[in-house]
Nucleic acid binder design. Structure first.
Lengths: 94, 94
DNA sequence: TATACTAGTTTCCATATTGGAAACAAAAGG
DNA sequence: CCTTTTGTTTCCAATATGGAAACTAGTATA
């Protein structure tokens, strides 16, 4: 039986939300994610960097119709870590 | 539909474990809980105080067979808050 | 080209959290 | 008394968190 692996990096409220959202929608724009979380852009940027540094998150920048956009998505490693963390959570809270 | 109420006090890893354990077993001794969490007594004492200050935890001291023992248990308010937090978690992680 | 705007990033700073060791307190036993 | 047991509180260092402001890069506009 696999009880999952508790991941403190993912557990923090904002980062848990980020992972949960990105796992569902596969990818999302910075600005939209910022609105969903209701945090400042500096805070979001820093939380994203933490996830990216752990190879949990991919940050893709592109220009569309003259607008700069940043797309976020979990890497495979990030998705796996998130799923493991969810397992761990479930084994804790039942 | 009730999505629960995310509770940062409960969410922190050690405190989440404390609540999860106490919700299951109803009450537990300080020393045993300390072993389960694998933290120092000062750390456990402080986390317990935080929960107690929020009226989430009851701390009962008694002397049994000449030994001082401290029993921990969630209050009704604590149990309720924990359950709400678990709901919130589940609504986040699916 | 100069200026302004958009979209994030990084710096700065203040506050909060976390953790263990050590000092302390209280109760019980010898 | 002195010691042991069982937590609590203090002390101190390390990390985390958050927003505002400064900064950067790309794009648009005059």
């Amino acid at each position: 039986m696999n009880y999952g692996s508790f991941d403190e990096l993912i557990h923090a409220p904002n980062r848990l939300m980020i992972c949960a959202i990105l796992e569902l929608v596969d990818e999302m724009e910075f600005a939209l994610l910022k609105d969903k979380l209701a945090v400042s852009k500096s805070v979001l940027s820093k939380q994203l960097k933490l996830l990216a540094d752990a190879n949990y998150l991919e940050i893709n920048k592109a220009t569309q119709n003259g607008r700069q956009r940043t797309w976020l998505s979990l890497t495979e490693e990030g998705t796996e870590a998130y799923k493991e963390h969810v397992k761990a959570l479930k084994s804790i809270v039942g």
